[in-house]
Design a protein around this nucleic acid. Structure first.
Length: 902
RNA sequence: GCGAGAUUAGCUCAGUGGUAGAGCACUUGCUUCACACGCAAGGGGUCGCAGGUUCGAAACCUGCAUCUCGCACCA
C-alpha cells in the first residue's frame, strides 16, 4: 500500500494515468479479440471541426461517450471508440483565409488561387488542426487514437467520391438550375438545413403603381423588399379577388428604376392562386429572381427573370443607376427614398417578419437561381421504419417524432458548394459531354467541376468510412473492423444536428451497409449559462474547460457536468457544479486515507459470522446502489447514476457507516489487543475494503483518474488477473448486484436495514435535542437511553460515539426523567438529555408543545381517512394496513411527548 | 399556423395514484485525531391557474396562462 497524500492533487495524477493507459494500449480496439463471450461495443465520435477548440458542449458530449466506453470495458466488452475530425468546409476555409489576411499575406483568396489556397489550408491543418483531440485527452477520453480519422484522408475521400459516382449512376444525384439558398457572405449555395429563420424588425412599404390601360388608376402594393422592384416582372392578384378581377391581363408601370423610360417598365397583371387577398393590399409584386415562391409563379406564367443582385449582395446595373453598386440593405432605404421623392410611396410602417439567415455567416440569405447538384435521398423508407419500429432507439424518445416528421417531408439535398476546401465533385466536362467518375476520362480538354461537396456529404458516411469501407464487396467482407464493430452501439450527439447528420447517416448506413449505423442515439441537451442563455464568445459566458480542469481537475468537471445534465434537458452550467465535483473527489480521497490510516494489511475475506448490524446495513445499501446505477446506465440516465453514487458514498457510507465504525476500529495506530476485538476490527476493515473496492469500480466511468490512483494506492489491484483489474481499474469487472445466495451469505435483509436505519434516526433525534438546548456540538454531555429491546454493548458504544456523548447510561426500570428533560424516541427506544440547570425548561416545553401539535395534526389526518368508509372499503389491504400502522406510530409518539411534558 | 417539452423550496431539478424530496444557497453551532473542498442541527413549498376522474391527485383527463425548442411561413 502506497501512502496517500493529505489533499487530492489531480494534475500529476491525471497525466500519469493517461500516459499509462495510452502506453499500455488500453484504448486500442482489436477485432480479433471479439467473440461470443467478449462482444463488441463501438461508438464513433461526432467529429469536431478540425479547427475547433474544446467547449463545454464537447465536454458534455464526450464525457458521456467516455462513460459509456469505460462501462462497456468493465462489462468485459471489446470497445472501439473511434475519434477524428471533420474538414468543415466553410468554417475551415474562413479561418485560414482570415489568418492569411491578418498576416497581410493576401487581400483576397484569388490572390493565391485555388490550388495554393488549398495547399495552405492543408499546411495549416497539419500544424494547428486537431487541437481539440489533444484537449479531449485532458478530459480523460478513452478513444482509440491509433484509428484517428479525418474526413479528407485519402481513403475517406475515395469513399465520398465513390458514393457520389454511385448515386449519380443510380440516378439519385442530378444537376439542375434551381432556386437555392445563397449566402452572400460565403458566396456559396447552402442546404435548407443551413438556413435558420430569425425575426427581423423592418418596414412594410406600401407603394403604388399606375395601371397602363387606365391612366389615373393605381394599385397599391405592400413589400418588405423595395430594392427588388426593378426585378419585378409582374404583379399578381388572386383570381377570386373581386377588387382586382377587372384588371387581370392589364399592365402597370413599375415604380423603379426611374432612369428607365416609363414605357420600358410595363409589366403584366396576372392572376395566381398563391396570392392571399387578406394579406397586405392583396396585390403581390412578382420577383422571380429573388424569391422562391415568386420563381414558381414565374414558371407558371412564363415570366422573364431579371436578376438585380450580385453574388455578394450588391445591386447590379439593371437595378438602375441610382441603386447600382449599393449593398442590398442600403439599396432598400434608397429605393424607398426614391419612391418617396417620386410620390409613389404611400407609407412605410414598422413590421416584424421572419428572414432566413445563413447559419454560419449569420447574414440573411438570398434565394438565387443557380446551377447546383442535388441528391434525392436514398433508403428513405428503411430509415424511417427503423426508428418507427424501435429497432433503433432514440433517447429521449420524443426526438423520434421530430425525425419522423422531417423524413416524411424530406426535400432533395443541395450538395454542391462554391468553395475550394472540400471534396471536389467527381464530374468532368468537355463541351456538352459530361463524365462522372473517380478520375478524369482519357483524352484532352476535360475540366473538372469546380464545386466541392457539402461537408455533411462526407460526414454522413462516418460510421463505416472510418472503418476502412471501400464499397468493394470482397474487400469489405474481409474487413475485420467493419465485421466486428459495425453497426456501432451508441451515438451521442446534440439534437441540433439530427437532420444534418443523424438522419443522413441512417440513410447512408442502409444504402451502403444494408444495416442501421447505430442501435441507440443519445441526444444531449444544450449547455447554457446560469441565466439560461446559450454559451457564446460574444457574451463571454463560456468558460474554457481547460481552465476548469486546471483549477478543479478533470474528474471534478466530468462529475459536475454529469450531475447537472438530466437526460434530454438543457444544462444550466454553473462553476459551482464543478466545485461540487472537486469536493466530492476530495471526499472520496479522504475516505480512502481514513481506511489507510488504520493500516492493517489484513486483506482478509469478510467473515459473515462477525458482521454487525451496521455492516449488514452498508452491504445492503451498496447492493441497492449497484442496482440503481446499473439501471440508470440501462436507461442512459447519467444524472440519476451520479445522484445515487453521491447519496450512497457521502450520505450513507461516510456520514454513517464510517462514523459508526470508529469505536470498533479504535484510534489510528492504537489497535485493540483483546482477541475478540481484534477479530471484530479486522472484519470491519474487510467490509470497508469490500465496499471501497466496489465503490471505486462504480465510480470509475465517471471519475477515471482518481479512482485509478486510489485503486493502486489502496492496493485493490493485487491478487486480480492483469486483464481484470490487476493492471488497471479500466478492465476491472463492473460490480454485480447481490444474488439471493450473496444476500443470504452477507445476511442482508430488510429487517436489519430498517433496524440500523432506526438507530441512526434516533441519533439524529438526539443530536437535535442538543442543538435545541443550545449545547455546542463540541461539548460532551451525558445521555440516558431506555431501549425498547435490549441493545448489545457494542451498539451502545456506537450510539455514544455518534452522539458525541460523555456517557450513555441505561435507564433503570424505575427511573423517571426529571420534569422538562428533553427526550426523543422511536422504535429503538427513548433517549433523554438530562441536563438539570443547563436546559431552559420553558424553551423545551415550547418545543414539545410544537411537536405535539404537529403529531396531533398528523393523527387527525390519518384518523379522518380511516373514518371514511369509502376509503376503508375500497383501498387495497396493504395501503389500509400501512395507514393503520401510521396511526399507531403517531399515537405512540403523542403518548411519549405527553409523558415528559408534565 | 403545426408539433414537442417545461411550469414542484431563493436557484437547478428528482418525484406518474397512498405521510412533498435532493443538491446548491440560507440560518445556527463546531479548528470532534479522513476531509473546513469538512461535521452537526435547522428554517423554507396552498407542486402555474381553473375544472374533472378517484376513497385519495404534484402525478391521470380537459381547458387556460406563461416560457423554451423544432417545423412551416404571406409578399
Amino acid at each position: 500500500m502506497t501512502e496517500i497524500s493529505k489533499a487530492y492533487e489531480p494534475q500529476s495524477v491525471e497525466t500519469k494515468w493517461y500516459d499509462f493507459w495510452v502506453e499500455q494500449g488500453c484504448f486500442t480496439a482489436d477485432p480479433a479479440r471479439v467473440s461470443a463471450s467478449r462482444p463488441a461495443y463501438s461508438i464513433v465520435i461526432p467529429p469536431p471541426n478540425v479547427t475547433g477548440v474544446l467547449t463545454l458542449g464537447h465536454v458534455l458530449n464526450n464525457t458521456i461517450q467516455d462513460i459509456l466506453a469505460r462501462k462497456a470495458r468493465m462489462d468485459g466488452k471489446e470497445v472501439l471508440w473511434l475519434p477524428g475530425t471533420d474538414h468543415a468546409g466553410i468554417a475551415t476555409q474562413n479561418v485560414v483565409e482570415k489568418t492569411l489576411k491578418k498576416a497581410g499575406e493576401i487581400k483576397h483568396r484569388d490572390d493565391l488561387g485555388r490550388e495554393a489556397l488549398v495547399a495552405r489550408i492543408w499546411e495549416w491543418k497539419e500544424k494547428y488542426g486537431g487541437i481539440i483531440l489533444k484537449q479531449l485527452r485532458a478530459l480523460g477520453a478513452s478513444c482509440d487514437w491509433t484509428r484517428t480519422r479525418f474526413t479528407m484522408d485519402p481513403e475517406y475521400s475515395r469513399c465520398v467520391q465513390g458514393v457520389f459516382v454511385d448515386l449519380y449512376k443510380k440516378g439519385l444525384i442530378y444537376r439542375g438550375k434551381r432556386m437555392v439558398n445563397w449566402c452572400p457572405a460565403s458566396l456559396t449555395a447552402l442546404s435548407d438545413e443551413e438556413v435558420t429563420m430569425k425575426e427581423q424588425r423592418g418596414f412594410m412599404y406600401h407603394f403604388r403603381v399606375e395601371v397602363v390601360e387606365h391612366p389615373g388608376t393605381f394599385l397599391t402594393i405592400a413589400t418588405t423588399r423595395p430594392e427588388t422592384i426593378p426585378a419585378d416582372t409582374a404583379v399578381a392578384v388572386n383570381p377570386k379577388d373581386p377588387r382586382y378581377q377587372h384588371l387581370i391581363g392589364k399592365h402597370v408601370y413599375k415604380a423603379l428604376p426611374l432612369d428607365v423610360p416609363k414605357e420600358q417598365r410595363v409589366i403584366p397583371i396576372i392572376a395566381d392562386d398563391h396570392v392571399d387577398f387578406e394579406f397586405g393590399t392583396g396585390v403581390l409584386k412578382v420577383t422571380p429572381a429573388h424569391d422562391k415562391a415568386d420563381f414558381e409563379i414565374g414558371l407558371r406564367h412564363k415570366l422573364p427573370v431579371i436578376d438585380v443582385l450580385t453574388p455578394d449582395g450588391k445591386m447590379t446595373a439593371e437595378a438602375g443607376a441610382e441603386l447600382a453598386g449599393l449593398d442590398r440593405f442600403a439599396a432598400r432605404k434608397k429605393s424607398a427614398e426614391l419612391m418617396e421623392a417620386a410620390g409613389s410611396l404611400e407609407k412605410a410602417e414598422p413590421y416584424v417578419n421572419n428572414v432566413g439567415f445563413s447559419e454560419r455567416a449569420d447574414v440573411p440569405i438570398e434565394p438565387r437561381l443557380s446551377e447546383q447538384w442535388f441528391l434525392k435521398y436514398p433508403s428513405v423508407e428503411a430509415s424511417k421504419a427503423c426508428v418507427a419500429d424501435g429497432s433503433m432507439r432514440f433517447f429521449p424518445d420524443r426526438w423520434a417524432k421530430v425525425y419522423d416528421h422531417w423524413m416524411t417531408g424530406i426535400q432533395d439535398w443541395c450538395i454542391s458548394r462554391q468553395l475550394w476546401w472540400g471534396h471536389r465533385i467527381p464530374v468532368w466536362y468537355r463541351g456538352d459531354e459530361i463524365h462522372c467518375g473517380l478520375d478524369a476520362p482519357a483524352g484532352d480538354g476535360w475540366t473538372q467541376d469546380s464545386d466541392v461537396l457539402d461537408t455533411w456529404f462526407s460526414s454522413w458516411l462516418w460510421p463505416f468510412a472510418t472503418m476502412g469501407w471501400t464499397d468493394n464487396k470482397t474487400t469489405d467482407a474481409a474487413n475485420a473492423t467493419l465485421k466486428a464493430f459495425y453497426p456501432t452501439t451508441d451515438l451521442v450527439t446534440g439534437p441540433d444536428i439530427i437532420f444534418f447528420w443523424v438522419a443522413r447517416m441512417i440513410m447512408a448506413g442502409y444504402e451502403y451497409m444494408g444495416d442501421l449505423p447505430f442501435k441507440n442515439v443519445y441526444f444531449t441537451g444544450i449547455i447554457r449559462d446560469k441565466q439560461g442563455r446559450k454559451m457564446s464568445k460574444s457574451l463571454g459566458n463560456s468558460p474554457d474547460p481547460l481552465d476548469l480542469i486546471a483549477k478543479y481537475g478533470a474528474d471534478a468537471l466530468r462529475f459536475g457536468v454529469m450531475r447537472a445534465a438530466p437526460l434530454g434537458q438543457d444544462v444550466l452550467f454553473d462553476e459551482t457544479a464543478v466545485e461540487l465535483g472537486r469536493n466530492f473527489c476530495n471526499k472520496l480521497w479522504n475516505a480512502c486515507r481514513f481506511r489507510q490510516m488504520h493500516g492493517g494489511e489484513t486483506e482478509q475475506e469478510v467473515n459473515p459470522a462477525l458482521l454487525t448490524t451496521d455492516d449488514r446495513w452498508i452491504l445492503g445499501r451498496l447492493d441497492l446502489a449497484i442496482r440503481e446505477v446499473t439501471q440508470a446506465f440501462a436507461e442512459y440516465k447519467f444524472s440519476d447514476a451520479t445522484a445515487t453514487l453521491y447519496r450512497f458514498f457521502w450520505g450513507e457510507y461516510c456520514d454513517w457507516y464510517v462514523e459508526a465504525s470508529k469505536p470498533v476500529l479504535g484510534m489510528p495506530g492504537e489497535p485493540p489487543t483483546d482477541p475478540a476485538k481484534v477479530a471484530q476490527r479486522n472484519n470491519k476493515l474487510a467490509v470497508i475494503d469490500f465496499v471501497l473496492g466496489h465503490t471505486l469500480r462504480l465510480f470509475h466511468p465517471f471519475l477515471p483518474f482518481i479512482t485509478e490512483e486510489l485503486w493502486h494506492g489502496m492496493a485493490f489491484n493485487t491478487d486480480l488477473p492483469a486483464d481484470r483489474g490487476g493492471k488497471t481499474l479500466l478492465y476491472a469487472s463492473w460490480p454485480k448486484a447481490f444474488d439471493d445466495d450473496e444476500r443470504a451469505y452477507f445476511r442482508v435483509d430488510p429487517v436489519i436495514e430498517a433496524s440500523a436505519q432506526a438507530r441512526f434516526d434516533l441519533v439524529t433525534l438526539g443530536r437535535n435535542l442538543r442543538a435545541q438546548s443550545n449545547i455546542p456540538s463540541n461539548k460532551r454531555v451525558p445521555f440516558v437511553i431506555r431501549p425498547a429491546a435490549p441493545l448489545p454493548q457494542e451498539e451502545l458504544d456506537i450510539l455514544k460515539g455518534l452522539l458525541n456523548a460523555e456517557a450513555l447510561t441505561l435507564a433503570a426500570t424505575d427511573w423517571q426523567a426529571p420534569k422538562g428533560t428533553p427526550v426523543a424516541a422511536n422504535a429503538v427506544g427513548e433517549l433523554f438529555l438530562p441536563l438539570a440547570g443547563l436546559v431552559d425548561v420553558e424553551a423545551e416545553r415550547a418545543r414539545q408543545e410544537k411537536e405535539l401539535a404537529k403529531v396531533r395534526s398528523e393523527i387527525q389526518k390519518v384518523q379522518d381517512k380511516l373514518a371514511n368508509p369509502a376509503f376503508t372499503q375500497k383501498v387495497p389491504a396493504s395501503v389500509l394496513a400501512e395507514h393503520q400502522q401510521r396511526l399507531i406510530d403517531w399515537q405512540a409518539k403523542e403518548k411519549q411527548i405527553l409523558s415528559t411534558l408534565h
